[in-house]
Amino acid sequence: MTGYFLRRLLWMIPILWLVTVITFLLMHAVQGGPFEAGESKSSSAARAALNAKYHLDQPIWTQYGYYMRGLLQGDLGPDLVNQGSSVNSLLKQSWRPTAELGVLTTIYATVVGVVLGILAAVKRNSILDHLSVGFATIGASMPNFVLGIMLVLLFAVKFKIFPAVGWSHGITDWRPVVLPVLALGSLPAAYIARITRASMLEVMGQDYIRTARAKGLRERVIVMRHIVRNALIPVLTLIGPIAAGLLTGSFIIEYFFSIPGIGRAYVQAILGRDYPMIMATTLLYATVIIVANLVVDLMYAVVDPRIRYS
């Protein structure tokens, strides 16, 4: 199995390389360059100077060569929109909000989803069940930006409990975190709740649970030790892709809450034709997705002994 994962790890290299090639070709096919005339009062000579400085006047493969040479040395290139700064420094500044948002949202979605799912299954057809199924349904039917609008209007503008924009600056500054996490996490939470509930119900109908009951074990022990533990196996394997999706798919929430994260920078980079930034973000996200995928496969093998990789 170690061999299998080593091969998978090695396989990441050609995949990521292909990602660079495809992204490079695509972004150069986008109309317009990073330095265009517009409301800025810069002259055409200045634009020509900038294009020359960043090799943008060279053929695309030469540009790709320059890029890959830098990349292999760990240099992700200059940040064309914020001149003078580099993509490395930009990513260094913006990865934290995105990572924090992704991790916190994953935790929120998992905990809420699992808890609601378990409660709904244990107390099947009770008010609790209906409530959590209702939450799961409503939560799943609202795009996160609609939820974001509602949360901001209610908790920031009306009750002034949480800030409307921005992100945490440190330990004590937890308030800006709450609304984005709720907006981003409720849909996956609803999803996890549904899966958990279904999985619980399935396990509860298994023979070995009946056996456990027949043995006279306490209900609490049965639920916690036998049902929950087995029912969470499929849920566990879902967390990888959900985390990857939340880490790489948070840009609308970042955009809406003005969170200085990578997602927002990526959209701005595409609109600003900031080539090195587009490349770097795509590569970073691709790596996150591949690793998450690998972790899922690993988890399958760990939690389900029937699966063997070779």
């Binding site: 799961a136 799943a140 849909l187 279904a198 119900l201 959900i242 997705i289």
Partner: peptide, 14 residues
């Protein structure tokens, strides 16, 4: 058995 399958948060991954 799966009781829910939205695939909605991120098409594809989930």
């Amino acid at each position: 058995a799966q009781d829910g399958l939205t695939g909605a948060t991120t098409p594809g991954t989930i």
